[in-house]
Amino acid sequence: MHASMPFRKKPKKLISNIVLLAVALFFIFPFYWIVTGAFKVQNVAVAIPPEWFPHAPTLDNFTVLFKNPVWRWTFNSFFVAAAEMAGVCLVASMAGYVLAKKQFPGRKIIFTLFVAAMALPKQVILVPLFTMIADFGWIDHYKALILPAIGWPFGIFLVKQFAQTLPGELLEAAKVDGCSELRLYYSIVLPLLKPALGALAIFTFINAWNDYFSQLIMIRSTPMMTLPLGVATLKGEYTTPYGVLMAGAAFASLPMIVIFLLFQKAFTQGITMGAVKG
């Protein structure tokens, strides 16, 4: 009777694998369509029925794409995303650690406000944020994209939840040995927060790279455009060069793939934090 159990489990496992494969293909297909479309001429890119694989691939779309200041747009996107990633990780690591391990009046209220802020869509605060940035004279500048995003409530929430799992005995022992608060944070807390910060780094970089809405509102000049914003401007007034747009989208997706591969180990550890209790 027990010997038949593995055979009963095999159909369920096979079905679950088929379902997971179907879901994976469903989510991968748009990316596949963009990449293959980048090598199609205009009439083939919009043909019905579609050409699932380019029979006569061409690099003309990339030639047209790089006639624009794409490298400048790419630099802008990298600079904004990297600066925002570093700022969010720094602020979130400090704020999350303090909210998790320090006792002070109003700690729970402050954390509740951060959680409540996560429910606010960006469009709600756009008008006062734009007015403030305009008063500061930051419109069409890197500061307009980087500084408002540094205090990301989700980042503080993520790090705070992970910091709660840090052993309090270790922190107390460091204080007894005469470790200053700054040294405690830099030498002990920060290394222990690496899994959470790795996941947060990916989330922040992708969020900053794809933040088309804020970039559209805050940026005015072509040299200051980021890559998603610059690619969107390639759409013509009367025609839409789908092949060029797909080439731009494929090119813009490469940095995100590289960032994920670099932080993949920390990312998988970060998203499973708290799943196992010691």
Rank of each mutant, 00 (worst) to 15 (best):
T131R: 10
T58P: 06
V189I: 13
I48Y: 14
N61L: 10
Y186G: 00
K160H: 10
K67Y: 03
C179Q: 10
M118S: 12
P255C: 07
F162Q: 02
M273T: 01
L158M: 14
F7D: 06
D140T: 04
M273C: 01
K143I: 05
F162L: 04
Y97H: 07
L21K: 11
L197E: 03
V80P: 04
M256F: 14
V124Y: 10
I219K: 04
A83P: 04
P6L: 05
Y238D: 10
W52A: 07
P228A: 10
L59D: 15
L25Q: 00
L229P: 09
L192N: 07
L184G: 01
G155Q: 01
L65Q: 07
K265Y: 13
L245R: 11
W152P: 00
L227Y: 13
T268P: 02
I202S: 00
K108E: 12
M5Q: 15
S221I: 14
L120N: 05
I257E: 07
L158V: 13
A83H: 05
N43Y: 12
I15N: 11
Y212G: 04
K67P: 02
S16I: 12
V127Q: 12
F114L: 13
F7L: 11
H141Q: 15
F27Q: 03
W52R: 05
G236F: 03
P6G: 07
A252V: 09
L193I: 09
P255S: 13
T74S: 06
G106A: 09
L59I: 14
T165K: 03
I150E: 03
L126I: 13
N68V: 09
K235S: 15
L113R: 10
